[in-house]
Write a protein that binds this DNA or RNA. Structure first.
Length: 806
RNA sequence: GCCGGGGUGAUGGAAUUGGUAGACAUACAGGACUUAAAAUCCUGAGAGGCCUUAACUCCUCGUGUGGGUUCGAUUCCCACCCCCGGCACCA
């Protein structure tokens, strides 16, 4: 297509101007109301910026520009989540140091971001891989360490054999490494943990305070997995030991027909002398389970396995009944107490196990209403296997007839149990046996006892004399410089910690740094944090619904508790941008060759066109496919805006008053709610009207203002040529516009039969009278007796007519 | 299996949260301009019916399926089907 305006020259001109003027720097001293608008900062990958980045960044950019025009002091910074595996894996392949590839990638990202006209405050740029930054990442480690919130301990950890490193639970997907897909194995290692579990309750409860997508909140709640239940002790008949089980259904205790211990349960070793089949069955079973991977355990999940502990009986504290005890791998060692009371009548898993082993099934809960019971049976298509949830107790001694909720408390109390909460959340394992990360600032004395590196030695530099070949131990172990540094400072025989930190540590606090990015004495001053934080709007991909967001919230809560900040949630409002699929409907991927490079679109059609196109595709959060053809629509729209320069008059252009007012209102409200697609639609309608009718200078100026957050280059250029100012956001013209009649739809029995025009002030009587006069309506009304008539002002008139003849 | 989100023309999507379904855009068709094509501009269009034809009008159906509430349902309720995302033996 022939291009009507020279986007290349125009965009270059304005981008240079903005850079030269540092036009988007946030003022630390301004007393305008602050607004902190943040993107999830990117990992600067070698592949460069992709169109998904563009979507999120454009959204926050539009909002930032919009809010600046409305008079806010906007902080809109950008930085680099620069540590991470891809650069290191590339180094393993090629020998090129990660710092080099990373810095090159940052250059590319910066160029691409600027080519889009994004209004970042570059004076606050940060990179997590710079010593100036990771000094403070290390400070956070020491901070948590000194508060007893970081500790080293031996633990079964997830190990990726390909990446040769430990993974956090959150980085294991279906038993495989999130990054490379290799099956994860369990290893017993000494590792550093952050005690995030101490904050589990606050991390659940405070979700109520934030404006986040409900799905993200739910994902976090599920991840933390708080459940409230009871711990109940079952004595063992011929031993002084006892088994404490965790249950959320204490009300079903009379239906407990056996107990189950996890294979890892420590009590098994203690009881082995009492277990008659220890050597013959129990021990072999435990061995088999131990050698199973998570994947195998999952695959075999359907068929329950286990072994009874012969010679052992547990005593049900509710009815003193002796019941058998099993070991089975469907009970997890690291959740609850590692032991359960099994109630096969009311738990599917217990039922499956009971079916395999022929164990008794005793119902102890039933719906109070027999009708509901019948419906439930019909629905499940069965007469037997109804799992009754919480309801009314039966066969439960003195507790028969109670409601479940009440029975839970009373039974727990009666059997000497206690109400407890358990969590699925585990402590955050932060050790990584990798090179390209922030070194953990710890050294070991000759006895092997860990000591924090004192703050004065921070940044505890990442050594450079390291080969990148994976050996199964951490690359930092090869560094002579690091060892010498350690011995020089601490003494001969001292050794450095050679693991680095999970990169999620780096990104768990970066939004604080933007408030005060050049501070060399603190990670950020209290004043700066007080001024700018919390983040008012945070936009990023939904893939971070648990990891990054949960860790950031944890760090924020610790800082709040220690008095560094006065708020407990870092991100007040969160939105996710949806994934942009390739034109063929698949995910964009190099291997499929369907990746769109934003550089190409910018070169061909211009940044403004790309911005408008991506925002017009659909709702920000929706998943939507790329369509190259549709880019033309965005470009045409901008050309129409350009062409209007010729059409502008000095007249009154009253024909445009109404659409002008509506457009100002609609665009203002849509941008506020990040509904960019409909805002653009409203602007298109305005432009179409202006083309057909007329437009005067004031109206054109307002059009450019409304459009300028979305398409900043072309609007700046036109404004300059026309002598306009884009500094202020337009106000809707509320002065007396001539009152037009509005079209009113008329329905008879719910079907549209006519439309008439009425003055907005018409009363119900006037409206109905006018409607009855309409010939089409009259015809339909004549078919029966009018039963009812409704007038909804400004919208619709509805008649109900009975056509029942006899 | 459980928990979220969703299903609207050929396509991306819109619908003020119960009030004229299909805005806006793309693709498509016809026309204008052109030697021609592209670009541009204009017009049309949910599916179907009524009609010798045409225009205008009119009618029926239509927001995954089947019911329901209502003067009125894409919107609310019940049941079901399908797609996407998350969790998944968590007691």
């Amino acid at each position: 297509m022939a291009l009507k305006y020279d986007h290349k020259a125009i965009e270059k001109k304005w981008q240079k101007k903005w850079a030269d003027e540092n036009a988007f720097a946030a003022s630390d001293s301004s007393d305008k109301q602050k607004l902190y608008i943040l993107d999830m900062f990117p990992y600067p990958s070698g592949a460069g910026l992709h169109v998904g980045h563009v979507e999120g960044y454009t959204a926050t950019d539009i909002y930032s520009r919009f809010k600046r025009m409305q008079g806010y002091n906007v902080l809109h910074p950008m930085g680099w989540d620069a540590f991470g595996l891809p650069a290191e894996n590339y180094a393993i392949k090629t020998g090129v140091p990660p710092v080099k590839t990373t810095d090159e990638a940052i250059k590319t990202f910066t160029r691409q971001i600027n080519s889009l006209g994004l209004s970042y405050d570059w004076s606050r740029e940060i990179g997590t891989h710079t010593p100036e930054y990771y000094k403070w990442t290390q400070w956070f480690f020491l901070f948590l360490y000194n508060k007893g919130l970081a500790e080293k301990r031996r633990a079964k950890v997830n190990w990726c054999p390909k990446d040769q490193t430990v993974l956090a639970n959150e980085q294991v997907v279906n038993g495989c490494c999130e990054r490379c897909g290799t099956e994860v194995v369990q290893k017993d290692l000494e590792q550093w943990f952050f005690k995030i579990t101490k904050y589990a309750d606050a991390l659940v409860d405070d979700l109520d305070q934030v404006d986040w997508p409900e799905s993200t909140k739910i994902a976090q709640r599920n991840w933390i997995g708080r459940s409230e239940g009871a711990e109940i002790k079952f004595d063992i008949s011929n031993s002084s030991e006892s088994i404490t089980v965790f249950t959320t259904r204490a009300d079903t205790i009379f239906g407990a027909t056996y107990l189950v211990l996890a294979p890892e349960h420590p009590l098994l070793q203690k009881l082995k002398n009492h277990i008659e089949n220890w050597e013959s069955e129990v021990l072999p079973y435990m061995e088999v389970v131990k050698n199973k991977t998570d994947i195998e355990r999952q695959e075999e999940g359907k068929e329950k396995t286990g072994v009874e502990l012969k010679g052992i009986k547990a005593i049900n504290p509710a009815n003193q009944e002796e019941i058998p005890v099993f070991v089975a791998d469907y009970v997890l060692g690291n959740y609850g107490t590692g032991a359960i009371m099994a109630v096969p009548a009311h738990d599917r898993r217990d039922r499956e196990f009971a079916d395999v082993f022929g164990l008794p099934i005793r119902k102890v809960v039933e719906p109070g209403n027999p009708r509901i019971m019948e419906t439930a049976k019909l629905k499940s298509g069965s007469t037997e296997d109804i799992f009754v949830g919480e309801n009314i107790l039966i066969n439960s001694g003195d507790f028969t007839g109670l409601q479940s909720a009440e029975a839970k408390k009373k039974i727990t109390e009666a059997v000497g149990g206690k109400m407890v909460k358990t969590y699925r959340l585990r402590d955050w394992l932060i050790s990584r046996q990798r090179y390209w990360g922030a070194p953990i600032p710890v050294v070991y004395d000759p006895e092997g006892k860990p000591h924090a590196v004192p703050e004065e030695h921070l940044p505890w530099l990442l050594p450079t004399d390291v080969e990148f070949k994976p050996t199964g131990t951490s690359p930092l172990g090869q560094s002579k410089e690091l060892l010498e540094r350690t011995e020089k400072i601490f003494g001969i025989g001292w050794k450095p910690e050679i693991d680095t930190m999970d990169t999620f540590v780096c990104s768990s606090w970066y939004y604080f740094r933007f408030a005060d990015p050049r501070n060399s004495k603190e990670f950020a001053s209290k004043e700066a944090m007080q001024k700018w934080l919390p983040v008012d709007l945070y936009v990023g991909g939904a893939e971070h619904t648990v990891l990054h967001l949960l860790y950031s919230r944890f760090i924020t809560k610790v800082l709040q508790q220690e008095g560094y900040i006065t708020f407990g949630e870092p991100f007040k409002k969160l939105r996710h941008q949806g994934i942009i699929l390739a034109e063929d409907g698949n995910k964009m991927s190099k291997s499929k060759g369907n990746v769109i490079n934003p550089d190409d679109v910018v070169a061909t059609y211009g940044a403004d066109t790309l911005r408008v196109y991506e925002m017009f595709m659909g709702p920000l959060e929706a998943m939507k496919p790329w369509n190259t053809q549709n880019i033309l629509g965005a470009r045409r729209f901008l050309e129409h805006v350009w062409d209007l320069q010729e059409k502008v008059t000095d007249g009154i252009a009253g024909a445009m008053d109404m659409v002008h007012r509506k457009t100002v209102e609609k665009v203002s409200s849509d941008l506020e709610h990040l509904k960019f697609n409909t805002a653009i639609s409203a602007l298109m309608i305005f432009v179409g009207e202006a083309k057909r009718k007329e437009i005067n200078r004031a109206q054109y100026e307002d059009l450019l203002r409304l459009l300028s957050p979305l398409a900043p280059h072309i609007t700046s250029e036109i404004a300059e040529r026309m002598g306009y100012s884009l500094d202020a956001w337009p106000q809707p013209n509320t002065s007396d516009l001539p009152v037009f009649n509005t079209p009113i739809a008329i329905q008879v029995n719910g079907k549209l039969r006519a439309t008439i025009e009425l003055p907005p002030a018409a009363t119900q009587e006037e409206a109905l009278a006018a409607a009855r006069k309409d010939p089409a309506v009259a015809r339909w009304l004549a078919l029966g007796k009018e039963e009812k008539a409704v007038y909804v002002a400004g919208r619709i008139i509805s008649f109900a007519v009975s056509t029942d003849p006899v």
